[in-house]
């Protein structure tokens, strides 16, 4: 069997990492375990992050909320702070896998897997989340959209650990929407997903909006042009038709066993149609 290390502090993590730079970081294992099967030895040794106290929990400052990377998805969902400030993130995480997966899987793990279908990613893009990376060399922060560079690819360097996700408290959204299309209602890998956050007036006019799509491009698809299309308008048919055109033009999906490129492109556009008439009286 492969070596499995279960450090309890970040210092220990860094020490182990400098001894074994090729170790696989493991935080919940809901992706790593599946990928490594059947032969775990080829991917070992494993360095488990779940018991590192500095990586756990949700803590707020005056302006930011810091979510430890090894916080489980269930813990994020259950957090009153998250429910209050970032309901969009909570809603998206509720669509990950099933309870057993959410109890083991972690937010940091979902980010570092960097799957085009990662369900936490579209809301984190919309919320302007930043990731905090640490190594023996020090600490750095970068926006999540800079951190993820492609399918399964991130800016994480050797010896470096994603320690936390930091989200600004002031988002200004009073309307949010999340929809995931999978092949079934749970235990599904996203075929396409939409996260949408907006600040609206009572009459439904959008002050500002942000849109992010999962599973329709190598990384989360966002578009300033798309966001700007909504500003100053209500979610009416004409605006949504323009949005659909921008989306279908902008996404670059693939075909795989779950869905074809054509379907993903079609549905990515369709998903915003669900917003028609929404955002009023809020």
């Amino acid at each position: 069997m492969a070596d499995v290390h279960v450090p309890s502090s970040l210092d220990e993590v860094f020490r182990l990492l400098s001894d074994e730079p090729s170790a696989t970081l493991f935080a919940g294992g809901t992706d790593v375990m599946v990928r490594s099967s059947p032969d775990m030895r080829e991917r070992g040794p494993f360095l488990c992050l779940e018991r590192v106290e500095e990586l756990r929990g949700i803590h707020g400052s005056a302006t930011e909320v810091r979510i430890g990377a090894a916080t489980t998805l269930s813990e994020v969902i259950a957090s009153p702070v998250i429910a209050d400030l970032f309901p969009l993130l909570r809603e998206a995480l509720r669509h990950v896998g099933a309870p057993a997966v959410r109890n083991m899987g972690t937010l940091g793990g979902n980010i570092c897997t960097a799957s085009p279908a990662g369900d936490s990613l579209p809301p984190l893009y919309i919320l302007g989340a930043e990731v905090e990376l640490r190594s023996l060399k020090g600490r750095r922060r970068m926006p999540i959209d800079a951190f993820i560079t492609g399918p399964g690819r991130t800016q994480l360097e050797e010896g470096e650990v994603l320690c936390a996700v930091v989200i600004g408290k002031e988002q200004g959204f009073n309307f949010h929407h999340f929809e995931k299309v999978g092949q079934r209602k749970a235990m599904a890998i996203s075929v396409a997903s939409l996260a949408f956050g907006a600040e609206t007036r009572r009459d439904g006019t959008i002050v500002k909006a942000r849109c992010a799509f999962g599973s329709v491009a190598p990384t989360v698809f966002t578009s300033r042009l798309l966001n700007d299309t909504f500003a100053g308008n209500t979610l009416n048919t004409a605006v949504l038709d323009r949005a659909v055109a921008i989306i279908r033009e902008g996404v670059s999906p693939i075909s795989d066993i779950r869905a074809s490129m054509e379907y993903r492109r079609q549905v990515a556009g369709n998903l915003v149609m669900r917003l028609e008439g929404a955002g009023k009286d809020r």
Binding site: V34, Q183, R184, K185, A186, M187, I189, I257, R258
Partner: peptide, 16 residues
Amino acid sequence: HETGDLATYIIPTSLD
């Protein structure tokens, strides 16, 4: 076999 495991061969969950 294009759907050689339970990640690609989809069966209903209790929610379905």
